[in-house]
């Protein structure tokens, strides 16, 4: 292959994804920022520069409440998902044997159906006539009101939606972790708790943080789960943004809400990335178990 062809191939290899990212990622983001500094009046965009939307966000408590609700929801869902993911991933890696790959692929099964379908199925499960409350009613017990159209229902749904992501990330981290380090610590007399807290957990912390973030970021902007399951008190920030771009037609305010969410997500990513050391992600380079 000539030097010119080589250069052309290299350019194509880099330029195609760059053009794609600029057109479909950077430009929409710029458009969102521009729109957030305009106004909407009676479903019409007024192209006059103003920071009014940001003033509204800062002064109207409703949007702040939506944001705080979303933030707490994202923290609870992500922490819970990490706590649940660890034993699952650990079990697959240590005891999965030759079924390890199949077990890990099973985690992706829910993704074969759409998100709306999964939420509607969950609505059927948790609703007043759903499987859980239906059985309780048949048994003569009172239905569980907290799982019907509430923040608890949204929490269950979001864990259901994003748990596979966290398990997969922790699983991949553990898969590449050199368990001989744990054996060595054990041989030196460390108990199980010490081995976990001083060797397994720190060396897989980066993978765990990545899993946490993969759950935290989409949960922070979740719109569908609260819409279908949240009930009258379950409106979250993402749902409110969707409302601005949908029935309310207050796009400029929605754009400002989107910009705030984007900046906050970037901040979280920045802070958490400080804790990620790729040399300590379980990829110790000493071979797999």
């Amino acid at each position: 292959m000539s030097e010119a062809e080589n250069r052309l191939n290299r350019r194509l290899f880099l330029h195609i994804p760059t053009v794609f990212l600029v057109i479909f990622f950077v430009l929409p983001l710029i458009a969102l920022v521009v729109l957030s500094f305009w106004q909407t009046e009676n479903y019409k965009i007024v192209r006059e520069w103003t920071a009014m939307n940001y003033v509204t966000l800062a002064t109207e408590p409703a949007y702040f409440i939506f944001f705080i609700r979303s933030l707490f929801m994202a923290i609870f869902v992500s922490v819970f998902s990490v706590v649940v993911s660890w034993p699952i991933a650990f079990f697959i890696v240590r005891h999965g044997g030759r079924y390890k790959l199949i077990l890990s692929l099973l985690l992706a099964v829910p993704f074969l159906s759409g998100e709306v379908l999964r939420l509607i199925a969950l609505q059927g499960m948790l609703g007043p006539t759903g499987l859980v409350n239906g059985v309780l009613l048949k048994l003569g017990a009172a239905p569980l009101r907290f799982i019907m159209y509430s923040n608890s229902a949204t929490f269950i749904a979001l864990v259901y939606l994003y748990l596979p992501m966290v398990v997969t990330t922790v699983y991949l981290s553990l898969l590449n972790f050199d368990f001989r380090l744990a054996s060595a610590a054990s041989a030196c007399g460390a108990n199980r708790f010490r081995i976990f807290s001083e060797i397994v957990w720190p060396l897989n912390l980066s993978g765990t943080i990545v899993g946490f973030l993969l759950c935290f970021i989409p949960t922070l902007s979740a719109a569908l789960a609260p819409r279908f399951l949240g009930g009258p008190n379950g409106v979250l920030y993402g749902m409110s943004i969707a409302q601005q771009f949908g029935e309310s037609g207050t796009w400029a305010l929605g754009a400002a809400m989107g910009v705030v969410l984007f900046l906050f997500s970037m901040l979280v990513l920045g802070v958490f990335s400080l804790g990620i050391d790729l040399r300590r992600t379980g990829f110790t380079g000493m071979g797999r178990q």
Binding site: E60, P61, A62, Y63, I65, F66, P232, V235, S240, Q243, Q244, S248, T250, L253
Partner: peptide, 9 residues
């Protein structure tokens, strides 16, 4: 929209 958001919040 403000009224509705305040109701929801």
């Amino acid at each position: 929209e403000r009224v509705w958001s305040n109701v929801q919040a």
